[in-house]
Structures are given as structure tokens and as C-alpha cells.
Design a protein around this nucleic acid. Structure first.
Lengths: 154, 154
DNA sequence: CTTGATCCTCTAGTAACTAGAGGATGTAGG
DNA sequence: CCTACATCCTCTAGTTACTAGAGGATCAAG
């Protein structure tokens, strides 16, 4: 680690000290190195300071930001929604109705997806329960797929 | 429509007559024109005959094949699986255990996805039930996302 | 010095489409 | 015949969120 960076930031707090290389950040947050670079590229993460040899150096606040992103991704929020949520986070006096709306929309999506997958599950189960492990000529799986009458949108 | 095509195929059955333009096929099957072209490009649909002006001309068997693909896509089978299923369809004496296996794998995926989405639903609901529509400073949505302790994988 | 780990930028790929751009052909009506 | 609209062609590139190298540079330990 370059002493120059340390010296220049001698009065920095822990949250502000840029001394964590990208590999450490990846291990700390569980987000892969290329993904971290990707988030920087699309503006979701600020470009970090660099060492003399051009290596990225992160601070604890970057780790916190990345953890927020990761958590939101796990909940299925898309990157644009996360962008909005993070912007809101930086305006404590703002109404939280937008954040609420984003989360509600996501919940509705999840509920819709569950419903659709459940219907799908039933269809697949029906397909499989008639399957006697015989020949293709009498194969239920192939038969159902080939039967246009079974297409749900026709 | 070119009389040449008709003349050359004078003894063709309906299933073999190549006279349906791509727009008609798209309307008949509900699959978009670019998607049909895409399927041809990746080999899922055979390249059709062409008119003198280079327009694609499809037969009823092409429509049947496309309907199979579409039905399988709706059930969430990926294109490689569909490729296999269609190959199996053309071998009536073959055992249908592979088709069965493909469908079972898909069913397992669906069940897994339902379980994961259901857990997600609960998390989102918890997040939202504490939301009092106040300020960001006390916003449950932002709070939960920012709280690393709530990250499921840490 | 060597070796292995870590990091850099860049290009392109993944899966399944989808959206034009720019041009050609077909058809109906005047 | 012309015009206007519909239909079709190929080609390129975009969508979303990553991901996989290639080729090279730097860092740290032995």
C-alpha cells in the first residue's frame, strides 16, 4: 500500500479511508470483481480513488453502498430501481412514498410471477403424470407439446 | 403468389405446400416475424423455400413445428431443450425417458423458483408492513436495504 | 531474481429475443 | 401508368445483468 495515500489522508476517518483493494471489497461483500467494475461503469458505484499503480482503492462507505445494492438485487429490484432507492437514501427529509411504491411494485411482480409459475407447475405435472416411460410415439410430453389445442393462448 | 411454385408442386399435399408468407405464419402461430427469423437462424426452424422475390414461403408442417416451439417456450423450456424434444419427436420408436427427464428437470426448476419467490414475497411484505409513509430518514424500505444484518447470505 | 497472486483495460459472450435502418416487392386504387 | 400503403428482406445493434477470457502490469514473498 502506498504511503502517499495514507499520508494525504492522515485525518480521514475509517469510513473515508480509501485503502481497500477491489479483491478485498469483493470478499467482504460477496459481489464479484467484474460485477463491481460493471456497477462502476454504469454509475451505480462512484469511481474510487486509485493507487499510484492505478489500482482501485475503496473505503468502508463504498462497501456499505455495495451491500445495499447487493441486498436490493437479491430482492429482485432492477438496477434502475436501485439507482432511485439510493438517491432517495441521500435525501432523508424526502417523503418515502416513492421507495414504498418501488417496493410495492416489486411485490406485485413477485406475486404475479408466483401465480404464473404455479399454473405452469400444474401443466407440467399433468404432462408428466401421463408419462409411462414408453416410446416417443406415445410420449405424453411430446404429445402435449405437439397438441395445439393445449396451447393456452389459442 | 408465384405460379411457378404452384406448378412445380402440383402434386403436393396441403401440409407440403409452401405458400404461406411469414406474416401469415406469425399471425397463425402468435410468434413474431423477427422471432421466426431468429429461430431459423439458430436452426430451430428449417430454412423455408423462397419465392422469386426471395420471400419466405412456409407450409403447414412449419406452422406445426412453430406451434410446438411456442408451446414449449411458454412452459419455460429453453431452446436447447426444445431442440432435443423436437429431435425426439422425429424418432417415434425411441424411448421417451429423455423427454420425461427434460420435463422433470423443468418441473424441479419451477418448484425451486416458486419456493424462492415465496420467501422473497415474505421479505418484501415485512419490509412494507413497517412502512408508515413518513420520511426517508425513517423509511423501512431504505432501512432494511441498508441494514447488512438483514442480508440473507451474511 | 522467480513465482504466484492480484489487478488493469478491453472485447465479446450469455439467453432470447427485439428494435430500427435502409431498401425491395406486392397490391389496390386513381 | 403512378401513388400509397402493406409486406418483406438483410443487417446492425440493443435489451438486462452480468460473465469470461486475452494480454499485460504490478505486488509481495521466497
Amino acid at each position: 500500500m502506498s504511503d502517499d495515500t495514507k499520508g494525504a489522508g492522515g485525518t480521514k476517518t475509517d469510513a473515508a479511508r480509501d485503502d481497500m483493494p477491489i479483491g478485498s471489497l469483493a470478499r467482504l461483500t460477496g459481489v464479484k470483481i467484474p460485477t463491481i467494475r460493471y456497477y462502476e461503469e454504469i454509475g451505480l458505484l462512484p469511481a474510487p480513488t486509485r493507487s499510484q499503480s492505478n489500482r482501485r482503492l475503496y473505503a468502508a462507505r463504498d462497501a456499505a453502498r455495495l451491500a445495499f445494492i447487493r441486498h436490493a438485487r437479491e430482492l429482485g429490484f432492477d438496477l434502475d430501481a436501485i439507482r432511485i432507492l439510493m438517491a432517495l437514501q441521500e435525501k432523508p427529509e424526502q417523503s418515502c412514498s416513492e421507495a414504498d411504491g418501488i417496493a410495492r411494485a416489486r411485490l406485485a411482480e413477485v406475486e404475479d410471477k408466483i401465480a404464473r409459475l404455479s399454473a405452469l407447475k400444474i401443466e407440467l405435472e399433468h404432462m408428466l403424470e401421463g408419462c409411462a416411460h414408453g416410446r416417443i410415439a406415445t410420449c405424453r410430453v411430446i404429445e402435449v407439446l405437439a397438441d395445439h389445442g393445449k396451447c393456452r393462448h389459442q
